[in-house]
Nucleic acid binder design. Structure first.
Lengths: 245, 245
DNA sequence: GAATATATACCGACGGTCGGTATAATATGC
DNA sequence: GCATATTATACCGACCGTCGGTATATATTC
């Protein structure tokens, strides 16, 4: 199956476009990034870009899909974990999302400012919808099992799972709004975390599970988050110059 | 401060721009509506448009603001209603929003398809944020009183009110997604209503109030909605020609 | 294994649209 | 008739997406 290699062809030109697009979108925003910038960064031409994608929006879809894929991979095995209780599964599920965020915090922190701007709702919207779409089956499985066991108080697993994720997204939107509103206030972060606890507590309450099942409530988490947010993580490499010899 | 009146001048050129923009945005979408179309509809020029608005986005803000104003006016007197119980206030509050939707259903129904498209998230986003911003003080007042009375189980009124509205928005997003997904399925509407009840029940549960406090649960509502959605309402006037002597 | 045909990857100029600006022209109040 | 408010027109530059075309690699045929 050895792939024939073309002299001029890239290994994975399409992937390079997606990567470049994400870096640019997250730094400059979607509307503010012309296709020409993506092209320049990759070092290919407009013709190539439109060979792989039918539109600028399509490359955004690919970007979002790649990100959600990562989270999805972390989350999918959880429902069938043999030893976890429903509560542990639920916690792992949200923890996995949280961990992804923390792991990518250096990117998120930098990108947040950009992505949370009104003009870039389209990015968040696509993320949110894809999260619901791709993650709700796994969550539904956990919820269904939880209902059977009596650990969760709900009527219908799929609808409930979808709803939880949408509420989760609503929380993220609140965080977005709060961060943008109080940009340079160092105390803002902690206030946002407190606010987020309100949301998690509400979701717990509505599922009839005890406090702390979804929200970590461990000092560890806040510390990690604190550290990541305050900028101890690696900064992204500075240069935007993508093309070189 | 007497308004200078001029023979050629419009009574309210700015308002006409806003009106025209709303009609076009709701029919064609935001991105797909060029400023030139708004101008043509009003019968003025680009110079005038940019005299009143600094950007295309600003006219969108004005459009959204005008809509939220309408809802806001209906909602603001509710908290101080002398005879309503907390439950009645809560119900009135959401009823007012629902009524606005039903009253404008003929517009919404037509606009929904357009507005719910991905490319038009920006419209919904601005609506959602403005709803939270402008309506949460009134709701917070109700919630605060409810907490005092022991009718509502929550810790903090403002945060809770904001959260409720955000969850409400999340429900609307679910409806958006469902409608778009099952566009021509007549049964879809009823399924969406059932799903919406799941959300309202969840919010009720999380506030510790009994089922039916927020969600109407009256046959009347479903009927009105049914009627409005199935197209018994007035269709919007067909022509796009807005300018007349 | 040379010749031919075809698919894949890529190029870059160009068209047309659109948001926004510059500036001139006109109206109105004083 | 002057300052200010309002409107018109011409124009700019950025941008998305298209299109005709090229080059290389593979498949086919003899």
């Amino acid at each position: 199956m050895a792939r024939p290699r073309r002299s001029q062809a890239r290994e994975d030109a399409k992937g390079e476009f997606v990567e470049a697009a994400w870096e640019l979108f997250s730094r400059r925003g979607y509307d503010a990034t012309p296709v020409s910038a993506i092209i320049e960064k990759v070092g290919l031409s407009k013709g190539s870009f439109y060979y792989y994608f039918t539109s600028k929006e399509e490359v955004l879809d690919a970007v979002v899909s790649r990100i959600v894929d990562e989270i999805s991979r972390a989350v999918e095995p959880i429902p069938s974990h043999p030893e976890f209780t429903t509560q542990e599964k639920m916690r792992s599920f949200f923890r996995a999302i949280g961990d992804w965020k923390v792991a990518n915090m250096d990117i998120i922190r930098e990108a947040a400012e950009v992505i949370y701007r009104d003009e870039n709702v389209i990015i968040r919207h696509k993320m949110n919808n894809m999260v619901v779409e791709r993650l709700s089956p796994a969550l539904a499985e956990i919820v269904a099992r939880g209902i059977e066991e009596g650990a969760i108080d709900a009527e219908e697993a799929e609808g409930t799972a979808e709803m939880i994720l949408r509420f989760f997204n609503a929380m993220a939107e609140m965080q977005a709004a709060s961060f943008v509103a109080a940009k340079d206030d160092p105390a803002a972060l902690m206030r946002v975390i407190r606010k987020a606890e309100l949301y998690m507590a509400a979701i717990e309450k509505m599922l009839g599970v005890s406090r702390g099942v979804l929200s970590p409530l461990d000092a560890d988490f806040e510390e990690r988050l604190q550290g990541a947010v305050s900028g101890e993580g690696m900064p992204r490499e500075p240069g935007l110059s993508g093309e070189r010899g």
